[in-house]
């Protein structure tokens, strides 16, 4: 079942998209990774609007969410998800460069499921993303779809 669900990666920087995809690919995850390039794009996917209007209505397995995003920030996207009855159960993992206390604080206030700082060292980054993928896509049981 889980394998059938998509993973939503919200990341504006194509380099980071590439590196993250590389890391996720290392596990040979069967999940399709959908990339949203800003906050609004992410909400479009979740609400099946704009370019995602035609997608099926299954929610993603989990969301990898950057904080600093064009248009809507990651925190705003998180707030929108948590305040929507249909979306609020979707696991959200912050994957960000920010170690700022305020970001951590607000993320957890809004009900984030995990907060991971992107390590500068590539090896460490690979490990971190691989583990996130393994945990949330394989190990973790997702909430039932209604």
């Amino acid at each position: 079942m889980n394998q059938l669900r998509d993973i939503l990666l919200v990341e504006d920087n194509p380099n980071d998209v590439e590196l993250t995809m590389e890391a996720l690919g290392e596990h040979n995850l069967a999940n399709k990774v959908i990339v949203a390039h800003d906050g609004e794009d992410a909400l479009d996917f979740l609400y099946r609007r704009a370019r995602f209007a035609m997608r099926d209505d299954r929610p993603p397995a989990f969301i990898l969410l950057d904080i600093k995003l064009p248009k809507l920030s990651g925190l705003e996207v998180l707030r929108a998800i948590r305040s929507d009855e249909k979306l609020k159960c979707i696991p959200v993992v912050m994957l960000t460069s920010s170690r700022e206390e305020s970001d951590l604080f607000h993320s957890y206030q809004l009900g984030v499921n995990a907060y991971v700082v992107k390590p500068v060292a590539f090896a460490a980054f690979l490990d971190a993303v691989k583990e996130i993928g393994a945990f949330w896509a394989i190990l973790n049981e997702l909430p039932p779809v209604r």
Partner: peptide, 14 residues
Amino acid sequence: SHDLRAPLRHIDGF
């Protein structure tokens, strides 16, 4: 913290 580290990470990553 956010924008300056990203390129470094990319350098190392690539």
